[in-house]
Write a protein that binds this DNA or RNA. Structure first.
Lengths: 211, 211, 211, 211
DNA sequence: GATGAATGAGGGTTCATTCAT
DNA sequence: TATGAATGAACCCTCATTCAT
């Protein structure tokens, strides 16, 4: 308030952070759509601007270069992965948590579609060290979250302790990453495969209870 | 004039099929190196020609377009995957077969390095239907081979029959694909993770024998 | 509505002429710095606005286009040249006047630095007829002033009359312009060269007095 | 010869250095015309390619960037200046040599036109250190050549020894550079001014012979 | 008056591909 | 066959300028 009145004499058009954030998202949505359709390198700034409904030049007022679009998108994606871990957390049992998240991933075609970007991200990370750093940082957070979750279930006796929590987390992530590859190939029976995957995971990790 | 008539004599007859095949391979080797380093779209024909030690124009006498290079490379890659299944086949038990192939993949850095291209291939398949078709065809052969292998082990009682052979095959492939993602992120302890993966798979699939 | 009526009251009356002139100068100072550093075409309005401490849009409320900035700056520059002639005028002898002005040009690094813009101005004049017209008009005033000065010294017998006053003026201006080129090349011994130039000029123009 | 026959088996189209050199010149001619008309920064590669009668991309097979066109042109220009010194050298007397070169510069409108680029070059040198280095190197050769020439005439007694040869050379170069500025302003009586300049120079440098 | 926001029109450069030898 | 030479079609990014507040 004080600031505003002090400057008021020479104030021009006031900045509007909300509008800026909104447009930023608008651009990122367009970029995501194009990257999904064409890949990071084949997608052009012109396409992105058309998809987002802004001018090319305007993109550059929000992102200094195309690569920053990629980076921002990756960060957005990876943080959203953490939400899924929270879901498993909140459900009572590990097995139920898995089922829930799987169902979400399958049920929401938007999510399924978006996840396809993960392949491009990993491929890009395998060559671009800066991208790799971004992905790796987020990945470590994800592994940590899943690992501690698994550890808790291990302590509770629901999962056996043979595999180290972090390794288990990495394997689960790998399996899900790999399943995206199946979707990429147009495999139809997504539901079946994912439930099979859930069974696969739980059988591999659950304490074997001798009847 | 003399030139023209000289050419006329040899027209229609491929001068030297072996030399052609050899150069074709030479070009593909260069292409693979570049695609690994830069990705399909960022790699340029100039780079490929330099890496292969031929002129750019020469590439076009073996492949009508850059995309054909990509396709040829993908086909080469996918058929080599079938060899791994044969290995598991030849080893006595499923568990041993897995261990063997894993060890090969890890031990040979060339193979490990090359496998990184798999991410790019899957990413490309997720958008390019023609590429997807090629990959899918090869993938189905791979699933079939692994599936029948698993089925045999299930019949033999070494693996339990809860999961359908094909689904199991797909899951294993997924897991391995996903592990390539870990390597792409520069995960150091490859050996540990892959042995964990083997244990993961066998625990998920083996008949649980109560001691 | 309220806004509009408020504005209407002050319409047509320049709010504060002094403030306007002041800001105009502020912008021109920023422009000069940028033009010196980058040249007319490579300097951007964004840079100029940053250097001047105003917004880009604000520049356009004082100058209708970038080229007008250039023109205004050139006019400013050229009128300041006339001041130097006055200096020579006021000193008692031609030789002394030359020495004085040379010393000023060298001593004040600001002036020396600014003079570098002269090259850009001349280069621009060689292609842009509108710029050429502006420069030429000012140049003719300068030649006239220097010419009449030289004529007076010729009458007084201090300078010989072999070369026509205007031609002499043009030659002196040329020599000084050319010396700016030496400075542009980073020639270190500015002092030496300029005193040599003074000697050069006086020897060429002075009546040769046989001792 | 031996080389050629050794490679003959796999030889493709043989390189043609003459044709390359020719096209290089063709491009440079187009670039010079455009740079004269628009200046280094305002001239576009598209204009240059049109003027030279080649495609834009073709330019980049001879020069890695636009700036290299500028550099090459500068070098070409500066070496041609050395030829003028040789002319003075060959003529019997300093005064006659000056007259000759001046006449050439004036008589050949191509030369006069081209010399206008000098202003742009100096302006560019005043900001771009790499360009400055190129210009300076060539300039030093020019000063050395002119300086030694003047020294020889000084020894011979045709020129007085009051001003050091190098300084005299620099002053003469400056004067000629500055005269280009006059031409840039569209000064009509080039001939008069240049002959006045010659007289100016000789009066400043010649041994004063007391009748 | 002054500023934030937006954009059309290029600018330099690259690239897959074709043509000529 | 194999290579040197050439090019049209973008591509990323920038900039002078305008509009809205």
């Amino acid at each position: 308030m004080t600031n505003r009145s002090l400057k008021a004499t020479t104030l021009g058009r006031p900045a509007n952070p909300e509008a800026r954030a909104q447009r930023r998202e608008q651009i990122l949505r367009g970029a995501r759509a194009c990257f999904l359709r064409k890949g990071f390198h084949a997608a052009t700034t012109a396409e992105i601007s058309a998809e987002a409904g802004v001018s090319v030049a305007n993109i550059y007022q929000y992102f200094p270069a195309k690569e920053h679009l990629i980076r921002a998108l990756i960060e957005e994606d990876l943080t959203s992965d953490l939400d899924l871990v929270d879901m498993v957390e909140m459900s009572g049992s590990f097995r139920k948590g898995l089922e829930m998240t799987s169902r979400i991933v399958i049920a929401d075609p938007q999510v399924a579609q978006d996840s396809m970007l993960r392949l491009e991200i990993l491929a890009e990370a395998s060559r671009n060290p800066e991208i790799a750093a971004v992905v790796k940082a987020a990945d470590e957070r994800l592994v940590a979250a899943m690992g501690s979750l698994i550890a808790r279930y291990q302590e509770r006796g629901e999962l056996h302790a043979e595999i180290k929590p972090d390794a288990a987390a990495r394997l689960i992530i790998s399996l899900y990453d790999g399943l995206i590859g199946r979707v990429a190939l147009g495999e139809q029976s997504d539901v079946e495969l994912i439930t099979a995957a859930d069974k696969f995971i739980t059988r591999a990790l659950e304490e074997i209870i001798i009847p």
